[in-house]
Every structure is written in structure tokens, then in C-alpha cells.
Design a binder for these strands. Structure first.
Lengths: 290, 290
DNA sequence: ACAATTATGAAAAATTTATCACAGAGTGCT
DNA sequence: AGCACTCTGTGATAAATTTTTCATAATTGT
């Protein structure tokens, strides 16, 4: 047992730097489901963090405990102390900051956006969109606007790993008409368009449609005019306490889509990822995971 | 393990009448310091309630458990569910889709990431980071890597509106040494580095630091090696059911930061936004809001 | 008040759980 | 490229905790 006035969670975070890879992996696993996971048997904890049993024993010693049971005893004490005090209901997200701190206000707004977006989304439409984007026979065009081009790029980057035959187009660039030259029947356009909707984007969507391409639209819940011609429309709520709109919810939809498509195309994705790994290994662009 | 939707505390109270004297004595003792006392060794619990060891074993069996460890496991599960809070416990987000639909699974993971990130963030560090990035006397460099360059760009785009005197650098590009030439004392580097940590990014950070610049790091909770030299380190949890990591939580932090800085610099931001509007109006790049 | 029944606790047996010592793998350094 | 280093996991050993057994005490019904 060690000093008080400092939760074990704090202590772990503090010592995080002094820990080795496996130990840190373990420490984070403990914090992830704190404190419940630390109150179970050592072996269970080790398994949950994908580390070996002695790693746990070593880490708790580094934290200053005599052994795992000692650590558990302290955890239980802490739990007991919390339970006795006024049960502060989790109204705040960043626990250490007041409710009015921007982190809490912003996070609350984003959670609300997510809840609303998910409540109104049509899973069938989402699945359709995924199927279209996953279909390797169709050339895939990903289109972003002024603000949304970063989102478009994020999707593009991941789709590049999953499948061939795709292009990133920026509607704000004046080169996009050139891309349309090659687009045709059965191709797919994923278009991002949120407030302030862009005229260029609408034009591009119309022309793509005229050429017989499918259109998947990511927009906010006021809906870009593109939605009238889109085959599938995915809307997100984007309201936050800021002068700008939030892209977080849209990002969540994009990542869900990537995850879904990766599953649909898993065989080819797996191979392509492996190849990518090999290339990175050869170029030694990245450090080994530490 | 038994049915859900009923806390163990409830179940004990319910069965209280069916228990014998010693067992009731024990039950009340458990409830007195719930749930901490039930998570310790059986013998300790027995001693605390002044009953014998087998009494405990018998009572948990009456409650429907196979044995004491089984009882403890259920207690821990309950504890885990409480800690996650009512919002995270949401089972389905996309109401129209089944729980196993990727939208629900993914969203749940992201909410969990957000909760964890916010639980462990240091608001003081966050405020410091905001102050550094907001300070217009310092030149601001925003650095992204292979995956993170979209996030970096997103921040860059917004900061461009808020303040002058900033540069977007890509650590994967081989032009970054040129940017460092101009960097010096008192400048600020916002660096994004998540798994697979990039050697280039680390080098860049080191050199920036050597030149007397401040370093603000956005990373995942395994922490990029850059964190050792960073002045402020903001970590996000990024685990999702996918072959890739999630950028959504990091996006949330970035947007919170933008919102915070916009408030700090509100006078200048307001003017700059107005100017931007005027320019857009002139170029007629965007449709009027409909 | 006595017998039958049930509850309780002490102690031993069985099982689970934690600790220790050692060897292999991976890293970084010269 | 080779050596020394640290870190990590496997298997063996020791410790602890839980379960079971059984004898005794308390309780209830007649």
C-alpha cells in the first residue's frame, strides 16, 4: 500500500513513461476498464491485455506494490472510498475539468450529434452505399470540397489500400472536368458536401449522374442540394459550440464505412495490406512498434 | 453468472428473507460497503461480517452462483457497466439496425474511446496547448505524417482563418528540412504522430526542439516517442473493430481546440472570418445558404 | 423436554492463483 | 555484422484461496 490523495489511475498514468512496451499495454488495458479489470485474477487481467502473467507482477512492483494482491487491496480501498463519498454522477466527460470547460461542452455536443445521426440513419442505405463503394468493377471517384476535402482524402487513403481503381477529385480545383472525361456508366462518385454547399460540387454531381454514374452523398442534416440526384444520401448532425461545424460525426460514418467495406473485401484487402507492410519494411519508413 | 437488468445489490435485498441469521448478517455486511467488500478474498469478507468461511460460500450459492469466484466476476461486470456510464451503455445506436451491425459496433467503440480519452485528459495541458497555438507572436507549424496529414490539414485550414503566421508541413515529404531553416526560438510545432510512428516525425520534432521551439503533440494512447520531448502531449484512444485505428477521437480534440482558440482570439478571428466571407462573395465560389 | 432438523464453524482437501527462475527473442550499440 | 543488453513469455514451484467434509450447536415441532 502506498500514499493516499492520488488515485491509482493517476499513479499509473504518471509512471507510464517508466514502463516498457508490454507493461504500458497492460497499464492502458487497466485504465480502459478501470477499476473493474484490476480486481479480477492476475491471469485474467494478463489475458485481457495480451501480455504474460509475470508482466503483470512486474508492473505492479514498479508501481510500488509488494505484489498483485497488495495492488488489489489498494484498488478496493479506493473503490470503497469513492462509494462512500457523494456519488458524483458522470455529467462531465473530462472529469478533472468543470462542466463549463470547452472540452466538456464540446464533447457533449458531439455525443449528441452522434446519437442523433445514428437515430436517423437508414442502415439499408448505409449498406447500399458500402456495396457500391466496395464494388471493384466500378471506378470509384471520391470528391471533396473546400472544407470536406480532408475527409474525402481520409476516405481515399483507406480505400486505396482496400481496392484499386479509384481517384480523388477536388471539386474546388479546376481540373475536375478532366476526370469526368473518363467517368461513365456504372462508376461511383462519393461526394462530400456540407454547409456552405458548393456550386462546383453540385455541377460535378449532375454531370456524373448524366453520364450514368451512381452518386453516394455525405452531407449534413440540412442536406446539400446534391441529395436530390444522389442514389444514396448519408447525413450527419454537425452542431457544436463553435463558429464552425463539426466533422467528427461524418468522420465516424466514414470510418464505419471503411470498416464495413474492409470486411466485404477482406480477402483482397488482407493481401493488399500485407503488400503495403512489405513495402514499408523495405523502405524502413517507420519505426518498429515500441 | 445470472440474469442482467438487476443489480446484485437488488438481488441480495430480494433474497434477504430467505436467508438464515448468519447469512443475513453477512448480506448486510456486503451491502454496507458495496461492492468493494465483495471483491476481496472470501475469508476477509467472512471475518468482516463475523461469520464463518463456509457461510459465505453457501450464501452465494443461494444467490444462484456456482461459487464465490463466479459471484465476484458478476460484481466486476456490474462495476464495469456502471463505470461506463449511462451513455456508453447504450446498446444500439442505429436504432433501426441490429446490435451487431457495424454501425452500432463501431459507434459503441468510438463512444468508448471518447469516454476514455476525456477521462484521462489533463485539462491544464489542453489549455496550455491552446494558449501556445493561439499565440500569434509564435510562428505555428502544423506537422502531419502519412495517415495523420489529413488531420493536420484540417487543423491547418481552420487555424488559417483564426490567425496568420502558420505553415503546414508534411513529415513524409522530403521538403520539411527547408521549413526548419526558418523555425526558431519561441515558435510552436503541432505534431501529429499515431501508430505506426514515423521516424521522420521524430527527427523533425527533435530538431524543432533543438532550435528552441515548443512542441505540442497529438498521439494515441500508446504514445509516439515524440512525447518524450514534447512540451504538451494530448493522447486519444483509437481502438475500433477495424484493421485500422480511428481518427474520430483525435478529430474531436482538434475541433475542441479550434473552438477554444477561436474564443481566445475572438476579436481577430471575427474580423478575419468576415473578410473571408467577403472574398467568397466576390468570387461567388459558393451558393448562398439555402 | 426430547428428538429431528437445520444452521454453523473448524479443519482438511482441492483447486485456483501468484511468484520465481530461466531461456529465448528482439533492440540497440560498437 | 556481432555482441551485450533489456524485455518478454514459458514452465515449475510455492502460496493463497475456495470448496468440501464432518462434528457441534442452535432451532423447531411434537
Amino acid at each position: 500500500m502506498v500514499d493516499a490523495n492520488l488515485t491509482i489511475s493517476d499513479r499509473i498514468q504518471e509512471k507510464l513513461d517508466g514502463l516498457t512496451r508490454a507493461e504500458r499495454q497492460l497499464a492502458l488495458s487497466i485504465l480502459e476498464n478501470y477499476p473493474a479489470s484490476g480486481l479480477g485474477p492476475l491471469a485474467t487481467l494478463a489475458k485481457g491485455a495480451n501480455v504474460s502473467v509475470p508482466t503483470v507482477a512486474r508492473m505492479v512492483q514498479k508501481l510500488g506494490y509488494k505484489g498483485y494482491p497488495d495492488f488489489q487491496a489498494d484498488l478496493r480501498d479506493e473503490l470503497g472510498a469513492i462509494a462512500k463519498g457523494p456519488i458524483a454522477r458522470h455529467e462531465t466527460w473530462a472529469g478533472a475539468a468543470p462542466t463549463e470547460h470547452i472540452l466538456n461542452r464540446f464533447t457533449e455536443a458531439v455525443i449528441d450529434n452522434i446519437r442523433n445521426t445514428m437515430a436517423h440513419i437508414d442502415p439499408v442505405a448505409f449498406d447500399q452505399a458500402c456495396a457500391l463503394v466496395a464494388d471493384q468493377r466500378r471506378h470509384l471517384y471520391i470528391v471533396g470540397g473546400r472544407i470536406t476535402h480532408t475527409l474525402a482524402e481520409y476516405l481515399f487513403m483507406h480505400m486505396q489500400v482496400i481496392r484499386p481503381n479509384l481517384t480523388h477529385v477536388q471539386s474546388t480545383s479546376n481540373t475536375w472536368p478532366h476526370y469526368l472525361l473518363n467517368a461513365g456508366d456504372g462508376d461511383v462518385f462519393v461526394i462530400f458536401d456540407v454547409r456552405r454547399y458548393e456550386n462546383n460540387t453540385l455541377k460535378l454531381a449532375e454531370m456524373a449522374r448524366a453520364r450514368g454514374a451512381k452518386v453516394v452523398l455525405f452531407t449534413d442534416h440540412w442536406r446539400s442540394p446534391v441529395h436530390r440526384i444522389a442514389d444514396v444520401c448519408l447525413t450527419s448532425q454537425i452542431i457544436v459550440p463553435s463558429a464552425w461545424d463539426s466533422a467528427t460525426t461524418t468522420m465516424l460514418l466514414i470510418e464505419s464505412m471503411i470498416s464495413a467495406i474492409q470486411t466485404l473485401n477482406w480477402d483482397s484487402t488482407k493481401n493488399r495490406m500485407q503488400e503495403l507492410e512489405d513495402i514499408f519494411d523495405k523502405t524502413k519508413l517507420f519505426r518498429k512498434f515500441t
